[in-house]
Design a binder for these strands. Structure first.
Length: 635
RNA sequence: GCCGCUAUAGCUCAGUAGGUAGAGCGCAUCCUUGGUAAGGAUGAGGUCACCGGUUCAAAUCCGGUUAGCGGCUCCA
């Protein structure tokens, strides 16, 4: 007999050699059905494995990360089997589970197309219906090499050769298909109820662009059809909210062939942008920042001094002026530093907080451009804080609080990460420790939860990153706070201390929106284009029912306009229904329907884009309420 | 940059045995004066992304360029 201790603390006894699957079934019929994989003393193993010693056992269903990973990984094997059956001669690379699904990379004479995906999917369904068991076979290095060499699976051979000497090598088979794999897998293909191949992409063997480009097929799978449908619905919803589509529909911005990656902001997009910027200015002024603006083009010597000429060159744009080399700025800091250096500073002045909405240009590879999310020029809501070492903690707390205040207005939840010293870093361990400790100390002081990202800091200093979570649960890295030890040295920054001597100030580099352009993209998707009134390009639209009501409509529109409300008048010769439909599609927060009754009483019938008809109200009341909504920046 | 796919009217898209272009929406004009998500009629609008080739003839076939889309890599 073997003793099995379970997660809940209970201990059960089984005959030696009982499989984990049988144990799961014994615990409960439901667990027997839902368990996908188990861990024995913390190590993940197949459910089909027999248990031959006393152990701590845990079962994982699709509800756990472990269960999902195994489930998707098994699905990727089924994908590989289907592809090799339909397209003989296809060689296999790798096929892991990823967040939300799985993929498999193939090297095939066949070019896969979306139509072929449907065929492959059908073949996968057959394999699942056949309910083939996944069988594990441990083998020696030589055995496995012989086998894959014979099968012409060069990628697998390469993988085996790269495995460490002591590695245990195993293969998994289902039906007549065998793949090199450490496992574990679900017991049989029948577990993989609902699947969908979602898209195709090229991918380099081992992610290295010097290697051969393979064809990657992405897919996802779930134990229930309904779960798959919900997942696909979320993807559809994300597509429906795509900022590129909404940006065009709402006439906010465009991208033109004449300037790939250089977005054009239309009048409505500019309203949104200006609102964001004035909110930003307001908050920064309150937080004691001074706004500056530095030039877009600066000479070569500056970029040599800052290190960009050596380290960031491939991302920069260059030009010549009167035979001298200049660069278009990819970052704002060197310019900002010149302002700091333009005068002598006393310790009494510190901290100095200088903020800049700085337009930077970075050369991105053509293939990565994506709407407003990845562009070649964007506006950083940058700021640099120069301070005494003793002020670091307090300043960081100030930035954290400011960031929190700004994100909160949009209703964003966010997560914080602290990134520590990377392998390649400059500066002594001592300075790093002190700096990292002050970031951590600041986070703890404000009671902020955070995750530590070991070794992910910038080479010049540790950093705190803010990851926004939008309404679809996607995260976006926006804000960042970085301690920078390099620039003050490179630029020989000083302040005069109490002792009358020169000292080196400490510098923080930080953003909150990150990139205004990208933040706008995130907002578009987060709100699905239905911006809160304070951000909406048009806040209210006046809809006269007939031509007879035009005069009254003009008067109402003028009153709103005079009160600072962004109002539009739809004076076209159309029916109200038609006008409402269009206003609704433009996601205008308030519609004011005006007819005989309203003209007579000095009222407006208010319709809200999501709350519907709110009934007739005196125009003054409406102006008062919408103004309050706008001024308090309600979401 | 690389791999794959795509490019027809402002937008969404039709247009296969190569024979000089079509719909709906939008726009303009007219009719209709209509109370909470599409009233009707008429009309304008395209050197079919660009360059080159094959052909008597190219939106359609071939090559190249550019841009977009999905990824790889990187990052705000």
């Amino acid at each position: 007999m073997v003793k099995v201790s379970l997660k809940d603390g209970s201990v059960r006894e089984y005959t030696k050699g009982t499989t984990l699957l049988d144990i799961a079934k014994d615990i409960s019929g439901r667990l027997g059905k839902e368990a996908l994989v188990a861990s024995v003393d913390g190590k993940l193993v197949d459910l089909t494995a027999p248990l031959d010693h006393d152990a701590a056992v845990e079962f994982f269903t699709f509800d756990s990360e472990e269960g999902r990973q195994v489930f998707r990984h098994s699905t990727s094997h089924v994908l590989a089997q289907a592809v090799q059956k339909l397209y003989p001669g296809t060689r296999l690379a790798i096929g892991p589970a990823i967040a939300g699904g799985f993929y498999y990379d193939f090297d095939s004479p066949e070019t896969f197309t979306p139509e072929k995906l449907a065929k492959i999917e059908a073949e996968m369904e057959n394999i699942i219906k056949a309910d083939l068991p996944f069988k594990r076979a441990a083998m020696s290095r030589q055995e496995s090499l012989d086998m894959f060499q014979k099968a012409g699976e060069e990628y697998k051979v390469e993988l085996i050769n790269d495995l460490p000497e002591e590695a245990a090598i195993s293969c998994y088979s289902q039906g007549d298909f065998t793949d090199l794999c450490a496992g574990p897998h679900v017991p049989s293909t029948g577990r993989l109820k609902a699947l969908k191949l979602t898209h195709l992409a090229g991918a380099y063997w081992r992610g290295n662009e010097k290697n051969k480009m393979l064809q990657r097929i992405y897919g996802t799978s779930f134990p229930k059809k309904s779960m798959l449908e919900e997942h696909l619905f979320r993807i559809e919803e994300a597509k429906r909210r795509d900022h590129r589509k909404l940006g065009a529909e709402l006439d906010l911005f465009s991208l033109q062939e004449e300037g790939p990656g250089f977005p054009f902001f239309h009048p409505k997009g500019m309203v949104l942008r200006n609102e964001l910027e004035s909110f930003w200015r307001e908050e920064h002024k309150k937080a004691g920042y001074h706004e500056i603006r530095t030039p877009i083009i600066l000479n070569r010597a500056l970029w040599e001094q800052s290190g960009h000429w050596d380290h960031y060159r491939e991302n920069m744009y260059f030009t010549k002026i009167d035979d001298f080399d200049y660069a278009v700025k990819p970052m704002n800091c060197p310019g900002g530093i010149l302002i700091y250096k333009s005068s002598l500073h006393s310790y009494r002045e510190l901290p100095i907080r200088m903020a800049e909405l700085g337009l930077v240009h970075r050369h991105e590879m053509s293939g990565v451009l994506h709407g407003l999310m990845r562009v070649r020029n964007f506006t950083q809501d940058d700021a640099h804080i120069y301070m005494l070492p003793s002020q670091v903690k307090e300043e960081i707390i100030g930035v954290i609080n400011l960031t929190d205040r700004i994100y909160r207005i949009f209703g964003f939840k966010y997560k914080v990460e602290l990134s520590t010293k990377p392998e390649k870093a400059i500066g002594s361990d001592e300075i790093w420790e002190m700096a990292t400790a002050s970031l951590e100390d600041a986070l703890r002081t404000v009671g902020m939860e955070f995750r530590v990202n070991e070794g992910d800091g910038a080479f010049y200093g540790p950093k705190i990153d803010f990851h926004l979570e939008d309404c679809l649960g996607r995260t976006w890295q926006c804000g960042t706070i970085q301690l920078d030890f390099q620039m003050p040295e490179l630029f020989d920054l000083n302040y005069v201390g109490e002792d009358g001597q020169k000292h080196r100030p400490v510098m923080i580099h930080r953003t909150i929106f990150g990139s205004i352009e990208r933040f706008i993209g995130i907002l578009i998707e987060h709100f699905a284009g239905a911006f809160p009134a304070w951000l909406a390009p048009v806040q209210a639209i006046v809809l006269p029912i007939t031509g007879r009501h035009l005069d009254y409509a003009r008067e109402v529109a003028a009153r709103l306009d005079a009160s600072g409300v962004r109002v539009q008048l739809d004076d076209r010769n159309e029916k109200v229904n038609y006008k409402i439909r269009e206003a609704q599609n433009q996601k205008i927060p308030y519609m004011l329907v005006l007819g005989d009754r309203e003209a007579e009483n000095g009222t407006a019938s208010v319709r809200h884009r999501s709350k519907g008809d709110l009934g007739a109200r005196p125009v003054v009341d409406f102006i008062r309420d919408i103004s309050a909504e706008i001024n308090t920046r309600q979401c």
